[in-house]
Write a protein that binds this DNA or RNA. Structure first.
Length: 757
DNA sequence: GAGCACTGC
């Protein structure tokens, strides 16, 4: 089988071959001849090390030596000062215990609470015992987030006194910071999954660590299922599942009763307070609690968890106002409120690290910082100095309804694990307090133990395609830790079958194999792959890139009118997809490129989103070229320029079509699922289109379809005849409209045939 | 006449 790799891989492999060409020791075909001495020759610091038989004492000796065992360079003085601090970490006391379990078993579950040092130290413990250099392999440690992979790699490179990207590196989307010398690689879990799709045995690794496994991301869950199979084919591969305390036994059971090692963390105690009675309005209660803390508690910053941007901005405003009143009337200390959520520009996010405001006069009451945040402060961002946490017990969570194939965000009660994590945020620097705005009874009886893993809350179309590409044929018996509902799985298989990515027996088709190469939703991948047939792959590529990044249109509450005017400059009467294309073209134009920041600001566009779309576009373009898909455009003057693009959109999104209801203005009904929907008010679609294609179904106060483009039913019959098999539609408005379209289509074809005769 | 929690390839 062809060993195809993702393109960043391809790059590093090419690099590796080139760099290694001169040295027979580095030639993979000759490597076995050097196995005894490779990296562990007599002069090496590792000479006395027997793989998987080392001890903490042995490692300590090398760590305390004069020269770096990995690159032969003398250790810097900074190395020794960091080493001293490392030895104080809780994990260090159990290094021998860890080594014994690691050596004895193929799979190990490691539980380390925050502050234990697990993410930085355990991979180094492994390195000194696994000696991957002697196997020409690597040790991998996965993280759910890119920033974590980068920053931990940087930290560990410093601890090991090596240059980042050499012996210690990281690999994330858009950036491969590794070299042929890399022995320890931090990477995102999604990246390892990508690699697995081309190397089902993950043969480049001698040990794989899945860190933060308790977060149960989609990628972690799939990787765990995969690794469970790989360990049977590769007895030489070792696996470490690293997690926070909760649910450790579940991991143990899943991995055939793997041994468990638990290391305590280093945090301060947090006192928990509950409300005696349930609160009616959690936002109002939260604001009241924050102000109460300010009035009655000692110094220390406050972290309040709310669910979304609007709620947060609103609460922040109210707390600021009330706080100012407290300063005036009760001589309270000054209070500074910072909103925090993902779509906030980075420089605004950075502001949360500013020190709290000083007292208003010498000797006055100390100032206090209040951070009002989404869940982003629960895992992604840690803020030191928080002493008080206010937890109303809610967050927005993604849920998936397979019956109508809709993912939506819903404000839901958090889990016990989440509540514990939130409380923990108060004890990072000193003992703290957590105020839960629900009763103790509710905590015990109503909150679920763990947030449902993502795999149970998502559309599985792309996951199923990935699994097929990973060589998993029998999905039903694939051992996932939490198997999704059969209906969700059936929906995904059905969707992939309609997209022709899977045949009727559920086997990967050529198109499916190609689609899996793209880091995209299968529908968007199919759209992109089909686009050369419609003479518009350049344009579809831009649209797909824009559809895979956060919203490009910015609409600040204070300047809505102005923002809408600017958006209208890019509007295309036939719909939002074409408007996105106009935005992209304008962004790449000379005017915008002269000063992109200013231009985006002036036009109410998000520079961050546009730049990231540009990045995505480049990545996708490289895959298109590698797969020899043609990059073509219809000449702009051609009257079919936009029509071709709209047809190509149908090639991927033909399952997301709505038709106007005969009665009722702008009321639409979705095809097949028969959901009543409204055009999202943000649409630029200028006319009452009979048929529209939509990108997204949003469930909020009403059912909306967002990002819509006008299309013709004839195109659907032409492009997706199986899905639009008229006989499968019940008698009614939609069916008769399709029949009329079919008539028009055949008349046209007949006329064309007549002309040819 | 609207609301994108968060993350990833």
């Amino acid at each position: 089988m062809a060993d195809r790799r993702s393109d960043s891989e391809e790059g590093s492999r090419a690099k590796r071959q080139k760099m290694d060409a001169g040295d027979p020791k580095n030639n993979p075909y000759l490597a076995h001849m050097y196995e005894e001495t490779n990296g562990a020759d007599k002069n090496s610091a590792f000479a006395k090390f027997k793989r998987h038989q080392t001890t903490a004492a042995l490692a300590k000796k090398v760590e305390d030596g004069d020269n770096n065992p990995f690159n032969g360079q003398p250790f810097s003085s900074k190395y020794f000062s960091i080493l001293k601090a490392r030895r104080d970490l809780p994990v260090h006391a159990q290094r021998d215990e860890f080594l014994q379990l690691y050596q004895q078993s193929q799979i190990l579950v490691f539980v380390g609470e925050t502050g234990s040092g697990k993410t930085t130290q355990i991979p180094q413990f492994v390195l000194f015992d696994d000696l991957p250099q002697t196997q020409r392999k690597m040790v991998a440690c996965t993280q759910p987030r890119r920033v974590a992979a980068m920053s931990v790699a940087q930290r560990v490179a410093a601890e090991m006194d090596v240059k980042l990207g050499e012996e210690v590196g990281y690999s994330i989307r858009f950036e491969d910071m590794t070299s042929p010398n890399t022995l320890l690689k931090y990477m995102t879990d999604g990246m390892l999954l990508r690699e697995a799709m081309n190397d089902h045995n993950l043969s480049r690794y001698s040990t794989i660590m899945l860190d933060e496994a308790h977060e149960r991301t989609m990628a972690t869950d799939v990787l765990m299922g995969l690794l469970k199979e790989v360990v049977q084919r590769r007895p030489d591969l070792k696996i470490i599942i690293m997690s926070a305390t909760l649910d450790a036994q579940k991991f143990q059971r899943y991995f055939n009763d793997a041994p468990l090692l638990a290391v305590p963390g280093r945090t301060h105690p947090v006192e928990i307070f509950y409300t005696p009675e349930p609160e009616q309005d959690y936002v109002e209660a939260a604001i009241r609690t924050v102000l109460q803390i300010h009035a009655t508690e000692g110094d220390g910053d406050v972290l309040l968890f709310l669910t979304g941007e609007e709620e947060i901005e609103d609460a922040a405003r109210k707390i600021t106002m009330e706080g100012e009143e407290m300063v005036r009337e009760a001589d309270a200390g000054p209070i500074k409120v910072y909103p925090l959520y993902g779509s906030l520009p980075p420089h605004m996010q950075q502001r949360i690290f500013e020190p709290p405001p000083p007292p208003r006069r010498p000797g006055g009451r100390p100032g206090r910082k209040v951070i009002v945040s989404t869940n982003i402060a629960e895992t992604s961002l840690t803020i030191d100095g928080i002493v008080y946490v206010v937890d109303p017990g809610f967050s927005k969570q993604k849920i998936y309804n397979p019956r109508i194939r809709v993912e939506s965000l819903l404000v839901s009660p958090i889990s016990k694990a989440s509540a514990q994590q939130r409380a923990g945020r108060a004890g990072r620097t000193r003992p703290g307090k957590c105020f839960r705005l629900y009763t103790e009874g509710a905590f015990k009886k109503e909150l679920i133990e763990q947030t449902y893993p993502e795999i149970l809350r998502s559309n599985l179309a792309s996951t199923v395609l990935e699994l097929k590409k990973l060589g998993i044929d029998d999905l039903v018996h694939f051992d996932l830790m939490d198997p999704p509902a059969p209906e969700t799985l059936m929906r995904a298989l059905e969707e992939l079958n309609y997209l022709a990515c899977l045949d009727d027996d559920g086997n990967l088709t050529q198109l499916g194999r190609l689609a899996s190469e793209f880091p995209l939703d299968p529908a968007l991948a199919v759209m992109l792959i089909s686009s050369p047939e419609f003479y518009c792959s350049n344009e579809i590529l831009s649209i797909v890139a824009l559809l895979s990044v956060p919203q490009v249109f910015v609409r600040p509450a204070s300047q809505r009118k102005r923002a809408d005017e600017m958006k209208n400059l890019f509007a295309h009467p036939d719909g939002d997809h074409l408007s996105l294309l106009n935005v992209y073209h304008a962004f790449k134009g000379a005017d915008a490129q002269a000063n992109p920041k200013q231009w985006c600001h002036d036009h109410f566009l998000s520079l961050r989103s546009l730049q990231s779309a540009d990045n995505v576009r480049m990545q996708l373009l490289r895959i298109m070229e590698r797969e020899e898909l043609e990059m073509v455009s219809t000449p702009f003057e051609d009257k079919k320029y936009y029509e071709n693009i709209r047809r190509a959109l149908c090639a991927g999104l033909f399952m997301q079509i709505a038709k106007k209801e005969s009665q009722g203005k702008s009321m639409y009904i979705t095809i097949k699922d028969n959901q009543n929907v409204l055009l999202h008010p943000s649409t630029v679609l200028a006319h009452d289109a009979e048929w529209v294609l939509y990108n997204e179904f949003v469930l909020t106060t009403k059912n909306y379809i967002r990002t819509v483009t006008a299309i013709k039913p004839e195109w659907l019959l032409d492009i997706a005849p199986t899905y639009y098999d008229i006989s499968s539609f019940p008698k009614g408005d939609i069916r008769s409209a399709l029949v009329r379209a079919a008539d028009r289509l055949s008349r046209k074809e007949k006329m064309r045939a007549d002309k040819r005769r």
